[in-house]
């Protein structure tokens, strides 16, 4: 009996070891290093100087501090981005995936077009959109835009959302497509025999069948949205010296760590740690919620 149990233990290690080793070396160690730095004052060059919880206190409680201002402004914009972006990036690709699943005429071309933006890098995408949105020279001028959309509220948010969904929804769509393909046809046939309409089939069979993948897209899209950096930066940097109007938290963190002057790496790390904890808590809540539905 005991011998069998020992065998099972070893096997799982063989499977997870390659990944785990790489994960620990290249991800965990740097993260722990980052956590250590968050308790120090460091300019990235000299020796870090231990300051305990000072950075956290300054960021969270010192209302006069620039870092406090930047943190909460960044957090606010980040949370707004998550709230706007996540529903769009879950529902829109799901809708497309469902329609494409029926295999309408020309579906191969349509899914190619819909996925195409995802293949571009962020710099390319940003460049094209800035050109298009330019009030004087771009498509926006033809459509009669009165202000520069990319940097005027509230249009800036709308432009940011449109560009983000356009660029990123392809990934989730592809996952849904793969998931839908794995749902056994037999279940649909059985339901049809019972007289179920398309809506019933959708809610009773399709959605539950892909719930694992739905959880995935939900968790990853949320975590990704919290970590967003590329889109707001590219979108709102229309001119040299023009500060972006929508500052998400990661942008602030970057500018504090890698600005034009000396780095305040301790503060930046502390902000990153807080953000990381935030995302983790949000994810835990998601998991619990989905679990209870199961």
């Amino acid at each position: 009996m005991k011998r069998k149990k020992k065998k099972v233990n070893l096997t799982h290690l063989v499977f997870i070891a390659p990944h785990m080793i790489i994960f620990i070396v290249f991800i965990v160690i740097p993260i722990f290093f980052g956590i250590y730095v968050s308790f120090t004052k460091w300019d990235l060059i000299g020796t870090p100087q231990w300051v305990g919880l000072d950075n956290y206190k300054e960021i969270l409680f010192n209302t006069k501090s620039t870092f406090n201002r930047q943190f909460f402004d960044g957090l606010k914009n980040t949370v707004l981005f998550v709230i706007f972006n996540v529903p769009l990036c879950i529902v829109v690709p799901l809708a497309f995936a469902l329609v494409l699943h029926i295999r309408p005429l020309g579906s191969k071309i349509y899914q190619l077009v819909l996925y195409l933006p995802t293949l571009f890098s962020i710099t390319s995408v940003g460049l094209i959109w800035i050109q298009l949105l330019n009030r004087r020279f771009g498509l926006a001028s033809v459509m009669g835009a009165k202000v520069q959309w990319a940097i005027t509220m509230p249009y800036a948010w709308i432009a940011l959302m449109i560009m983000t969904v356009w660029w990123t929804m392809g990934s989730n769509m592809v996952i849904y497509q793969a998931a839908l393909g794995s749902v056994p046809k037999e279940e649909y046939e059985a339901a049809e025999m019972d007289g179920a309409g398309w809506f019933t089939k959708l809610v009773k069979i399709t959605i539950p069948s892909i719930r694992f993948q739905l959880l995935y897209t939900l968790v990853i899209t949320i975590a990704g949205s919290f970590n967003v950096y590329g889109q707001p930066t590219i979108m709102t940097r229309v001119d040299l010296g023009a500060g972006p109007k929508i500052n998400v938290l990661v942008q602030y963190i970057r500018s504090i760590a890698f600005g034009s002057g000396q780095s305040a790496a301790g503060i930046a790390s502390a902000m990153a740690v807080i953000l990381g904890l935030f995302i983790t808590i949000v994810s835990i809540i998601q998991f619990k919620m989905i679990r209870s539905e199961d």
Partner: peptide, 16 residues
Amino acid sequence: KYGGIVDDAIFASQND
């Protein structure tokens, strides 16, 4: 010595 810090501080809201 701290010129970079000042530059960033100015650029943050100069346009505003």
